[in-house]
Amino acid sequence: MLAKRIIPCLDIKDGRTVKGTNFVNLRDAGDPVALASLYAEQGADELVFLDITATNEKRKTLSALVEKVAHTINIPFTVGGGISSMEDVRILLDCGADKVSINTAAFNSPELINKLAGEFGSQCIVVAIDAKRQVDGEWYVYSNGGRKPTEFTCLDWAKEVVSRGAGEILLTSMDHDGTKAGFALEITTLISNSVGVPIIASGGGGKPEHFYDVLNGCADAALAASVFHFGEIRIPALKTYLNNKHIPVRIK
């Protein structure tokens, strides 16, 4: 049976792991290669590296990091953050990344999704969507790292990215991110039931029960960062808990 995936996310700045709460107040949580290796040993199913470096050196430091990670871990990993061209993707895949995650660039030029899927295959194109519920009750897409509201509903955009060739959707609820109060079950279920590709739920995982709730619902995978980085949830214990509750998970 296909297992539900547990995915630690490492936010990277200048080659170091950081994680913010509601996308601000960054805290340092260590060396990404050491952390990645630890998570792989603990039974993480995949890793996501999100690079938030904004300097000209970004491309060089990121590809060096990806190369190091690829030589260290033996599970799949995704790289995202500021990817905006075919060339960016080619470099990262050549360095050993299995998938790339695109967000703002896909929003600004949706045909990029078609081009990337055509060139590299849908299986390695993850489209990340940051969403927030507005006063009208609808979930809307935010671009530019969650700073820029858009007029696109999350549902419409999810359907469009899948029709253009996205192989997975990484759905982050900005309302839940950093709260440790649970994942956004309603929008995750809606999106998962509306598109035919796997959904990675992100934002709000604080307790094992939260992971159960979202994986027992419709998410194919659940992603979190600080709860893993600061040892509040340990992956082996989380997987044992989920397994006991009859969620199919990979236990070594």
Binding site: L2, R5, S122, G167, G196, P198, R250
Partner: peptide, 27 residues
């Protein structure tokens, strides 16, 4: 059941030296 299949699944009815030391139902 989403398509493509993406993720960890079990391999069973293992019948080859290729799987020496690999348990039935390994992911």
């Amino acid at each position: 059941e989403k398509i493509p299949q993406i993720g960890w699944n079990t391999i069973e009815c293992l019948n080859s030296p290729l799987f020496n030391g690999v348990e039935e139902g390994a992911y």
